[in-house]
Write a protein that binds this DNA or RNA. Structure first.
Length: 281
DNA sequence: CGACTTTGACCTGCGC
DNA sequence: GCGCAGGTCAAAGTCG
């Protein structure tokens, strides 16, 4: 009886060890997938930036910090359905010499367009993050007020957002993001659906003239590469291991939520177990 | 009562 | 140096 119990225990221990090894293997595979994913995103970001630089070269440089000519280029991007995202490499030409000398760390700037009801006067954009409004101004080039937001998700996060209605289409909200979030998106923790929804790349964007019947604003021609830069940078992976860990967890959760994946995994595990049992006998 | 929003004042950069 | 315009601050107001 005791011998039987001992053999069962040792078998269980062996099984546990094997499962641990399997788990380790799967984790490694997942890490590899993450790396491949990051490489692909980086390539995409480089491609988008390249196309934006060639686009910018055709426009005359503005004399002021913000010029209408620059906004026109953005507006045409909405109509054309082309995503707009710019790094400070382009923005540097708008900064003064003094600023350029001081600004060693380049800030990331991206623009996101949201389709809303024209009657909706609020400048609130539900993009998954929590924002604290700290100011509102009426600018010269646009009669509608511009709202200024700071990221309220984390006290250390210095990301800022400007939201203003488009001059051409009052139903389109233009959100300008400055900087990078040093924390995960709050809604991403619960579900990755918001990620798919707000970080949509180009073609899948809904038509610009669509009359939204939704309560929430609909993103139009959306690209937010702040996440991409965060995950692609090798230094950021060192600086923010928890972010990388979270990304892995998110991917793992999305995979486990996939019934096909879990079924395939279960089949593989049981297959391996069956194989091992057969070889042991 | 705390968190959030509003809004006038203030700061800063740029052009003239 | 001055004025303009964009951006930020912070006290007061509002809301749950």
């Amino acid at each position: 009886m005791r011998v039987e119990e001992d053999s069962t225990t040792s078998a269980l221990v062996d099984e546990l060890k094997r499962v641990n090894a399997e788990n380790k293997k799967l984790t490694e595979m997942l890490t590899l997938m993450c790396d491949n994913y990051n490489v692909l995103r980086k390539q995409l970001m480089e491609y988008v930036n390249k196309s934006n630089i060639t686009e910018r070269d055709q426009t005359s440089p503005p004399k002021k910090r913000k010029s209408p000519a620059r906004d026109d280029a953005i507006s045409s991007a909405v109509i054309g359905g082309v995503s707009e995202s710019s790094s400070t490499e382009q923005d540097d030409q708008y900064l003064c010499k003094k600023q350029r000398e001081e600004t060693v760390v380049k800030e990331k700037v991206s623009r996101v367009y949201y389709k809303t009801e024209a009657s909706d006067t609020t400048l609130v954009v539900k993009d998954g993050y929590q924002w604290r409004k700290y100011g509102q101004k009426v600018t010269r080039d646009n009669p509608s007020p511009r709202a200024y937001f700071k990221c309220a998700c984390a006290p250390t996060c210095s990301v800022k957002k400007k939201v203003q209605r488009s001059v051409e289409d009052q139903s389109v909200l233009v959100a300008t993001y400055e900087g990078e979030h040093n924390h995960p998106m709050p809604s991403q923790i619960d579900s990755n659906s918001s990620l798919n929804r707000y970080i949509s790349l180009g073609g899948s964007a809904p038509p610009a003239n669509r009359t939204s019947s939704l309560a929430e604003p609909t993103p139009v021609s959306t690209v937010d590469l702040s996440e991409a830069k965060k995950t692609t940078s090798p230094t950021s992976r060192i600086d923010f291991p928890e972010v990388h860990k979270l990304l892995v967890e998110q991917m793992a959760s999305s995979l486990t939520k996939d019934p096909n994946f879990t079924a395939a995994l279960a089949a593989a595990v049981t297959g391996r177990l069956y194989q091992q049992n057969q070889t042991e006998k």
